[in-house]
Amino acid sequence: MKSAIIVFPGTNREKDMQMALAHISGHTPRLVWHKETSLPDCDLMVLPGGFSYGDYLRCGAMAAHSPIMREVIDRAKKGTRLLAVCNGFQMLVETGLVPGALLRNRSLKFICKQIYLRSDNTSSDFTHRFAKGQVSQVPIAHGEGNYFINEDGIKSLQDHDQIAFRYCNKDGLVCDEANPNGSIANIAGVLNTEKTILGMMPHPEDSVMPQINGHQGIPLFQSIVEALT
């Protein structure tokens, strides 16, 4: 499986993503600078975490208009798989490739902590190695991860099985106490209707080395590798 990670000025989790993908797939992803206008041949594109453009205008807003993004959007529309994490998810909603918006955490503070995710969709290329309702512990690290979408939008996401992950407690219960940022319906990650694009706030890439930082992000990468190899 060949993958490319797009690096913007201010991106800072490209190395975490590169290590995770290399660890699970055996192939080191290419890093592609945002000023490039063409992408290498790849099966997976990744928009990684960080603070692209310092988050100065609105998280992800500037990056969504970087030169490389035209190519990324174009390829994604043609079906090349796209994984967008944290700041990458913020860019993704700016492009409109998945619905919704990401607002400031309801605590108004940056939060870095381990949280629990419950798997909803388990049939996509990103999620098929999870069992329905499986609980996974992975970290979050963001200030603006409060996912919002209107009621029709939620219904549409549910109808099309687009919700990949919801925040839950360690027993798998989706409840307000387990919601770290105020996301509507505890939504932590969403797919496009074709299930070729996944955007999520948590960092599975920081949970793939059991003796260092955990291992429950592994099924996500295994899903991708298995589907795209």
Binding site: D16, K109, C112, Q114, P139, H203, D206, M209, N213
Partner: peptide, 25 residues
């Protein structure tokens, strides 16, 4: 305090701040 700090970025943190339920587990 420390939940406002990203202690995990770069992916190599083994022991992070705090005692119980820390960011690096």
């Amino acid at each position: 305090i420390w939940e406002q700090y990203d202690s995990l970025v770069m992916g190599e943190t083994i022991f992070s701040p705090g005692i119980a339920q820390t960011q690096a587990l």
